[in-house]
């Protein structure tokens, strides 16, 4: 055996110097792809696909959201949500919470306004909330007007 070839003593180690780099690359990937999604909302049971014939608007509370977001309740203008809440609470107490509330929204009004009213009604624990479609409203013109 050649005496010049001596087995070198290299200690066996796992190289971990780049571990942090790899980990930080993974962090960057997850940070970029993570989307903290909104997973909560207001639940609303849809009506059945049947023509509604037994509509009794005089027995209901009728909220109309105008194109600019202004409100009327049973035909009278309302200035604030507090006023609207007060009116609805009064009517609910009179009828033990049985009175249905109809929300009609002008087609050009912002959607967010309807959600705001729906939220208020749910907060006031109104059980019977109806959001008629524009097609339904066409059929109910005689009751609600244009």
């Amino acid at each position: 055996m050649n005496p010049y070839f001596k087995r070198s003593r290299i200690p066996s180690v796992i190289p971990t110097a780049s571990m942090a780099d790899i980990a930080f690359m993974l962090i960057i990937f997850f940070m970029l792809t993570t989307v903290f999604t909104a997973t909560r909302g207001i639940e609303y049971g849809l009506p059945k696909n049947e023509p509604i014939t037994d509509i009794q608007p005089r027995e209901s509370i009728y909220i109309y959201i105008r194109s600019g977001g202004g409100l009327t309740i049973d035909g009278a203008p309302v200035r604030s949500l507090e006023e609207l809440a007060g009116y609805i609470q009064g009517k609910m107490e009179e009828t033990a919470g049985k009175k249905p509330v109809i929300i009609r929204t002008d087609p050009s009004a912002p959607y967010g306004r309807t959600v705001e009213i729906l939220d208020l009604l749910k907060l006031l624990k109104v059980k019977n909330i109806s959001i008629p479609t524009q097609t339904d409203l066409e059929l109910w013109k005689d009751y609600f007007g244009e």
Partner: peptide, 18 residues
């Protein structure tokens, strides 16, 4: 909303922020 009712969907959740 109309298409969902026409197709007999039963329940919706209107997504909101807190």
């Amino acid at each position: 909303y109309e298409i969902l009712i026409e197709n007999n969907a039963t329940n919706v959740s209107l997504l909101t922020e807190q």
